[in-house]
Design a binder for these strands. Sequence first.
DNA 1: GGTTATTGTTCAGCAGATTGAACAATGAAT
DNA 2: ATTCATTGTTCAATCTGCTGAACAATAACC
Lengths: 264, 264
Amino acid sequence: MADSRTTRSEGLGASSPAPAVTRAAAVLEALADSPSGRLTLSDLSRELGIPKSSTSNLLLALEEARLIIRQGADFALGRKLVELGAAYLSRLDEVQEFYKYCEQAPTLSGETVRIAMLDGDHVIYLARYEGHPAVRLTSNIGDKMPVSLCSVGKTLLAQLHDHDIEAMFPDGMELPTMTANSLRTAEELKAQIATIRKQGFAFEDEESTVGVVCLAVPVPTHGAHGPSLGLSVTALKATYSEEQGALMVKELKELARSLGNPMG
Amino acid sequence: MADSRTTRSEGLGASSPAPAVTRAAAVLEALADSPSGRLTLSDLSRELGIPKSSTSNLLLALEEARLIIRQGADFALGRKLVELGAAYLSRLDEVQEFYKYCEQAPTLSGETVRIAMLDGDHVIYLARYEGHPAVRLTSNIGDKMPVSLCSVGKTLLAQLHDHDIEAMFPDGMELPTMTANSLRTAEELKAQIATIRKQGFAFEDEESTVGVVCLAVPVPTHGAHGPSLGLSVTALKATYSEEQGALMVKELKELARSLGNPMG
DNA sequence: GGTTATTGTTCAGCAGATTGAACAATGAAT
DNA sequence: ATTCATTGTTCAATCTGCTGAACAATAACC
């Protein structure tokens, strides 16, 4: 939780074409990363290394834009961010298609399916289809998850070049863990990636949550740009069978293929 | 669609404590409002009245912060906004409680329930519980809706002071419509608000979608600040009955009360 | 209550971001 | 091909937003 602090620490040193904007973005990020989600002017000034008077100006401007709000003495993220985030998602054609496909897929339509996107060494969940009301995930849209801890993360990693993976996970690096089954070292992760590349899909066996298994496939990126997306199904280990898994992978792959092709 | 143009038009004239930030926010908003979600540097420069060279600087800084991304020639909202929006929602304790309550409520647990927030003359949907997989709303989290067109919007309006309502909807004002049942004038809206205040809940009869009815209640705002929230249930008119409606209103009110009390 | 350590605000001077005109690079039209 | 229109980039001069020290206003402490 507190380890990603160094990432932001300075970084503002490098001159920006519009420093005020870069700093404002840092403010938003600091608020998002803060455990309580609320920071005072002084907190922000101290943490980001920005003079108080400047911080005050930034906060005033951000507040006027409703990107943040005052709550008594301290500041928190504003509701406009929900709007902007939603605007982003609504433009992502893949999300619309994702819902439609899930609803009419023979096996998937009864499961919990998610579409996620790579964001550095984390994965962000963009949308969730729930075909099985009994099993409900605690995770929400927009949540972040370390790549090494979920099957989607690993499929997305598997699509990167080896030197990128090496840069993110140098040998000997310890990984964050959540259960006894979680991968522990960079070496284990790379071994799994090799398997995923061979199989074309990832399987996760109680690595993030006890009692839960996961299957995931990558969405082939059409063209150069565009985010790398992945699909996953989550199922209870108790009711999971290999045959069912094979069916789900087949449907996931079909959906992934259709998402990859610009024209459905 | 194109009528809200004037709102943003200048507005930047008023001096800001950090103009670059205010302009950057305007850029994000312009991208969110744009039908295609993609605008070029020149588009933005023209629309916002910012010199091209300055716009270029803003875009570079925003891109570096990953609040926007380049897509060939033009720019679009970035995925970081999803993250920030999610961070906002995750701090909203009400959303967590909302899910929990819906799951174990006798009647609501089988329906589609949503929690929404007032944002000017629109309503933003923050979370959606779906107990009935057969009926799936096309609306997504973060979507916006004119207040006058949905029951949640009207309950939230009903909580405002009369002079605020008068300012937003002066007599004679025409309202946006979506079906034959949609309210058409400010007078009709105010009459409904009076009814809602008496009843304590709002009923919507195919005013936004044919074949769909809605019930909504406001969440009492505890203390001075904090957003005004509302809850709604959506049901098919075909299967809707008054008795069922009464049950749902009862449960909605209970949930609203518990959300209103800081300590559950 | 008096002291100390905070907090957020104010303001004048300087560092520096902003600007517009001129530039090159692309694409549309003749 | 040649022109025309438009795009995004470059750069030096200027205007202005940023800064830090001093301020007032709380809050925490003994």
